[in-house]
């Protein structure tokens, strides 16, 4: 199934098979109009209708999101900003299928998440979402290659095929020579790039990133943002990024603001 979705994704983009690295040349040509295309109101890949999310803390109910609507067109690179506690992560978690809205409908990558069981959601995430976390979230006892391979263990790919894809993904992030390194042997920026390789290895449609540069110095942050731009433009990933960093938001094609549970 996952294999199918990867192939479907690549076919749609009229890409040669063999993955990310081989696309570099072809994609470079599109660079000029890539951004325009992505923004140009394609079919939406994320549709949120009247989403509310509240948390119960003792007797108190905290209403974080309240009747929020959102459409994200396929192929766009969106940045979400807003004050701390405004519900940015809560919103991202709902889009990524990690959390469910209290009320409202979330349709993401063609599936209505509100109707899916926990198990179905997990499977759906493995096929449709790539995650980039603020603190990288690599498994410290696994090597870079093994970390990147994790999402592929949920597919029926052969070990050889998995190895090939891991190598390709690490080549895209420029760390093919660090395959056997453990996370503690890498710099923060390198760790985040391994995490990005892990996020794309399954060829998901959407990449979500919650403060991807929050733990990085300026230089590493810029590298990571450049890489994310490339994923958007070359590989046509829809990216939904939460950030506090105006410079990061600047790289996105769409900037949104969340305040007091509503999009501005």
């Amino acid at each position: 199934m996952t294999t199918g979705s990867i192939e479907a994704g690549e076919a749609k983009e009229a890409k040669s098979e063999g993955g990310a690295a081989s696309k570099a040349g072809a994609a470079a040509k599109e660079k000029g109009d890539g951004k325009g295309k992505a923004d140009a109101g394609g079919p939406s890949i994320v549709t949120l209708r009247k989403i509310s999310r509240s948390f119960q803390r003792g007797r108190e109910t905290i209403q974080v999101l309240d009747g929020l609507d959102l459409e994200v067109p396929a192929g766009s690179f969106e940045a979400l900003m807003g004050p701390s506690g405004s519900g940015k992560s809560t919103l991202l978690n709902i889009i990524a299928g990690l959390d469910r809205p209290t009320t409202g409908d979330a349709e993401v990558a063609g599936s209505n998440l509100s109707r899916m069981s926990d198990g179905e959601l997990a499977k759906w995430r493995s096929q449709n979402i790539g995650f980039i976390f603020q603190s990288f979230n690599l498994i410290p006892v696994l090597t870079a290659a093994q970390n990147v391979e994790l999402p592929l263990l949920l597919t029926h790919l052969s070990s050889d095929e998995r190895k090939k894809r891991v190598a390709t993904a690490l080549r895209v992030v420029g760390l093919e020579d660090r395959m056997e390194h453990y996370p503690r042997q890498l710099s923060g920026g390198q760790e985040q790039r391994v995490a990005i390789a892990r996020a794309i290895v399954n060829d998901p449609k959407i990449i979500v990133a919650d403060e991807p540069t929050g733990d990085l110095d300026r230089k590493s942050a810029d590298d990571v943002l450049t890489l994310m731009e490339r994923l958007n433009k070359e590989f046509h990933k829809t990216i939904f990024m939460v950030t506090h960093d105006p410079a990061a938001a600047e790289r996105a094609s769409v900037q949104r603001r969340l305040d007091k549970g509503a999009l501005q």
């Binding site: 990524a96 990690l98 926990d118 198990g119 997990a122 499977k123 995430r125 493995s126 096929q127 995650f131 976390f133 979230n137 498994i139 410290p140 994790l150 999402p151 949920l154 892990r198």
Partner: peptide, 14 residues
């Protein structure tokens, strides 16, 4: 728990 949460996010089942 964060590691476990990450594995769950990546799609590993309970």
């Amino acid at each position: 728990s964060k590691e476990i949460g990450t594995l769950r996010a990546l799609g590993f089942s309970r």
